[in-house]
Design a protein around this nucleic acid. Structure first.
Ligand SMILES: [Mn+2]
Ligand SMILES: [Mn+2]
Ligand SMILES: [Mn+2]
Ligand SMILES: [Mn+2]
Lengths: 219, 219
DNA sequence: ATTAATTTTTAGTCTAGTCTAAAAATTAAT
DNA sequence: ATTAATTTTTAGACTAGACTAAAAATTAAT
């Protein structure tokens, strides 16, 4: 069966919301992320349920079915592979690629994405450290921690970000925080949970809890 | 001003029809190429005229304005650059890329297409020998002939094709006719205008007028 | 356990882009 | 120059995907 652009965007967002929790997803939370009104979301959920891509009961929320999930994963795979292409081959910065990938992820071709995958040498992660689902929809669980969870005086490696927004990524770049950086937590302020970090023996930098929460690290 | 996918496809087709002739373009000819009904075309022509991209008078046909033409050329530029990418970088054959490029040509980004252009080393022609418009909308007039116009015993070089259809391109491939091939016209049958060709001293092959008409050559 | 607040769904409307059927204009044929 | 054939436009209807306003269901507060 064929998927429209609108349907693909809904499935992708429902996937993101399902990831966190075992609960069913609320209409309002979807409305927020799609920038649509709740009434429009209800309409679409009924269509998606009709097509067998979500399970949905009035007032009780929604979840992806196996098929719905595999559609979402194939779009995420395309999004992330295109982001790798834009950064690795065309020389974009990591904060510039998300919007373009939002368009490219909807290009429909059986062969294209696999040829692209091969051209890029089968990358396992995208420019933001997010794992790239395989053709079969396997997505490795990387088990990263949020930097905000790291204990005082521990050292870790920056593996990814939990947010794609350009302003956030530009801030990280300005602070010299890029994928692979070695970070030592030298101070945690209990008052506002802000953090001081040493990046590879340089003099410490200061980041808010909001920032630390969106940085993914490996111990 | 912003262009929808449907509008872009109409402008591209009107451009193609304008290219040939100085006459205004008929509603029916557009309907045929867009695979829409004439009534739908009339609707769209009124919208395009409203936006200033075509000049249009009821019953009198349509032409692109300067702005309309520059939009069409920017889409054609994108289409052809993506075709080069698909063939040169991803290893597609020339008969496999048109449909994918039909989708990619609508990706909207100021920077993307110029970075792609640079990544591809500023190609001047696409995999079918068609010229790639510059960023400014300049399109070199290549002055090629149709193979059907070449005189008996003359030798020429295959520079391009006048048709993108997969079956046509596959036929050429099967006949060993590819870009750059040296062709000698060794026989022209006046009855059906079919042609016999020597490709680089090999034994002659036979092609119909229909095929010869869609092969572009340089003497 | 009622009432109040919140969330979700329904009902009805809108736009873009398509269609069919019928009317109007143009072009071709007598 | 009429008439006939063809082309083009209008009129009215449909679908996808959005919206607003109002009704219904759920959840929270007394
Ligand atoms: Mn992204
Ligand atoms: Mn990413
Ligand atoms: Mn093409
Ligand atoms: Mn081409």
């Amino acid at each position: 069966m064929t998927t429209s652009l609108a349907e693909e965007n809904y499935l992708k967002i429902i996937y993101r919301l399902c990831e966190g929790t075992k609960e069913d997803i609320s209409t309002n939370s979807i409305a927020e992320l799609t920038n649509n009104k709740a009434a429009s979301v209800t309409d679409m959920l009924q269509k998606l349920a009709e097509k067998g891509w979500v399970t949905y009961q009035k007032y009780q929320g929604v979840r992806l079915t196996k098929i719905g999930e595999s559609i979402a994963l194939s779009i995420i795979r395309k999004h992330r592979l295109w982001e790798v292409f834009l950064v690795e081959k065309l020389g974009y910065n990591w904060d510039e690629v998300h919007e373009i990938a939002e368009q490219l992820e909807h290009i429909e071709s059986e062969t294209l994405i696999n040829k692209l995958d091969s051209f890029l040498d089968f990358p396992k992660i995208d420019p933001h450290g997010d794992p790239i689902p395989s053709q079969e929809g396997e997505i490795p669980e990387l088990g990263y921690l949020h930097l905000s969870e790291v204990k005082l005086n521990e050292t870790c490696t920056l593996m990814g970000v939990a947010k794609d927004s350009a302003v956030f990524l530009q801030l990280l770049t300005k602070l010299n925080l890029s994928l692979g950086a070695r970070l030592e937590v030298v101070e945690i302020n209990t008052f506002d949970r802000s953090v001081s970090l040493k990046i590879a023996e340089e003099k410490p930098i200061f980041i808010s809890y909001e920032v630390a929460k969106n940085i993914l690290v490996k111990i």
